[in-house]
Design a protein around this nucleic acid. Structure first.
Length: 275
DNA sequence: AACGATCCCTGTTGGC
DNA sequence: TGCCAACAGGGATCGT
């Protein structure tokens, strides 16, 4: 699924294509993909005729600054990917949004499940839209003391708290499991029960795991293949320590990787080395 | 306020 | 072999 490494990989592919480009139009083929705006037509109306100044990211949100104070925000949801292609190239199924850029390749959002979205926000709307998005897990990772304070008294499982984008933005179900395994912390542990050393280990693991994912171009699962904008697949899948490996051997302690459901999400862990 | 459940959506999978 | 229910998950929303 697209989590921080996949979104950042996408951003790096898209940035040279969209930065400095003049938007000639935005086709919203499925209104649902523009649901964050009051009217689906707002996206095209606000973006057309403006240049993209810079493409950034916070957590799993792609954030493009346009001329005139308009911000282009998009999210890949669970099955979205951006394709950068020649305007004449045949369209992949589920091409739900097409961004036309003058004298540049076309940027297409392909998203079968439509959990992703594109939006064009005014400054006021932007502040509201991103109010619940916390510090970026890679670029703005809070210090251990700050995380410890945020977790104090929390009874929700640490796995659920790592998925809460308000605390730290960018982790999804795959990398959260990988982080907890690396940090040797069990996913069911109440967040407030972690001591300072454990929080420090989780913090360190976030950086290591996300950077490793990024280095390998992200994780492409077999079914809903997340693909890079050039069509290639990320190869971090083969390096996952626990996610999707239930029943298999833990590479660190030789135990058996188990699958449990935590807060309605599948979680993979090794009771041999996670406490 | 914090927490947990539910819903959205569709391709894939697993059980009968 | 074929069909269909169950499953997957990021984030918004709602009830407790």
């Amino acid at each position: 699924m697209p989590e921080l490494p996949e979104v950042e990989t996408t951003r790096r592919h898209l940035a040279p294509v969209v930065e400095g480009a003049l938007v000639d139009g935005v086709e919203i083929r499925r209104d649902r993909m523009a649901r964050r705006n009051q009217r689906p037509g707002d996206v095209g109306e606000r973006m057309t005729g403006r240049r993209v100044l810079r493409l950034g990211r916070r957590g799993k949100f792609l954030i493009g600054d346009l001329e005139g104070g308009i911000t282009w925000v998009s999210h890949l949801g669970m099955s979205g990917r951006f394709a950068v292609t020649d305007p004449d190239a045949p369209e992949a199924p589920h091409t739900n949004v097409v961004v036309h850029l003058r004298s540049r390749p076309q940027v297409r959002l392909v998203d079968p499940r439509m959990f992703g979205f594109v939006a064009a926000f005014t400054p006021d709307e932007l502040a509201h839209a991103l109010a619940a998005v916390g510090p970026d897990a890679l670029d703005e990772l809070p210090r251990t003391a700050r995380l410890l304070e945020a977790l104090r008294g929390r009874t929700a499982p640490i796995k659920a708290l790592l998925l809460d984008q308000r605390l730290v933005a960018g982790l999804g179900n795959i990398y959260a499991d990988e982080v907890l395994h690396r940090a040797r912390v069990a996913p069911q542990r109440p967040g407030g029960s972690l001591n300072a050393a454990e929080v420090a280990a989780v913090r360190a693991a976030i950086g290591v795991v996300l950077r490793a994912g990024l280095r390998h171009g992200g994780t492409s699962l077999n079914d809903l293949a997340y693909l890079l904008p050039d069509g290639r697949a990320g190869d971090y899948l083969s390096r996952l320590a626990v996610y999707g490996r239930d029943g298999e051997t833990c590479r660190r302690c030789g135990g058996v990787v188990e699958r449990v459901v935590v807060r309605g999400r599948s979680s993979h862990w090794c009771r041999g080395c996670q406490r």
